[in-house]
Amino acid sequence: MEESEVATSKATVDNDGIKESSENQMKDATEEVSSQMSSSGSECKPSEKTEVKHNRLKLFDKVMQKSLERFIQHVSFNRFASMFRPLYKKNPQMMENIHKQFIEELQGAIKEDINRLIEEGRLEFKLNELDKLERAAKDNPEPAWRPSGIPEQDFCSFLMPYYQKQEAYMRLELKKIQAENAALAQKVQAGRESITQTEHHISTAVEEWKASVTEFERLVSSLCPADVFDV
């Protein structure tokens, strides 16, 4: 009974040590990879712009890889066997196989979770956007925006540019609609003028036709007087 309690307490201490050491290793890996990336970035040439574009994603991959490697180092066979000492004493070879399979499945599960995190969080897109913001900040000599401490002013400073853009867009659309309406009005006016001219031509043709009919009747009456046919 005492041996089981000692083993349990030892396992608890080991797990706590793993958590603390994994956090420390994560920080160390981040600092190590950051220093490597900064040293390699100082030697980067202008022709390597396409490679520099993905530095943050590469940094993330290296940090995850380093953290995974150091985390796996803490899950050593000796520590694993100490947790299952009775089974280890009965069959050490089987315990080694179980430990190997455990390490492979653990690595696979962690890598799968990391890949899912990258896909679901759209990490590559967001890191590229962060690169763009960084380049824009370098090109912009003005200081970056900082909150003033007054929520009303900060809220207005955030919304006013948006409303100004919307106003400019609405003014542009209004000008387009006014130009379209003016073009349509010109077409309507031209159509009305065409109809008026057509009505004038029709009325002129009718008057000419009436005049020709009257002239024809007068000519017929002059050539064939009515008294010639009287008996």
Rank of each mutant, 00 (worst) to 15 (best):
225 P>V: 04
87 L>Q: 08
129 E>S: 07
222 S>D: 14
125 F>E: 12
118 I>R: 11
154 D>T: 03
137 A>S: 15
58 K>T: 09
123 L>V: 15
20 E>I: 00
94 M>V: 05
52 V>C: 13
225 P>T: 05
150 I>R: 11
103 I>A: 04
195 I>E: 06
124 E>C: 11
105 E>C: 13
230 D>C: 15
205 A>Y: 07
91 N>K: 10
136 A>P: 02
139 D>Y: 06
197 Q>I: 08
5 E>L: 11
3 E>V: 03
136 A>T: 08
57 L>S: 05
197 Q>H: 03
20 E>Y: 04
103 I>E: 06
125 F>Q: 10
7 A>I: 05
180 E>T: 03
138 K>A: 15
7 A>W: 02
90 K>M: 05
66 K>D: 08
133 L>W: 05
190 A>W: 00
98 I>L: 12
75 V>Q: 02
62 K>C: 04
110 I>V: 11
90 K>E: 10
134 E>C: 05
97 N>F: 14
72 I>Q: 03
36 Q>L: 01
184 L>C: 03
141 P>E: 04
100 K>M: 09
27 K>F: 01
37 M>P: 05
63 V>F: 06
183 A>F: 00
138 K>Y: 14
125 F>N: 12
18 I>Y: 01
154 D>S: 03
58 K>F: 04
17 G>A: 15
197 Q>W: 08
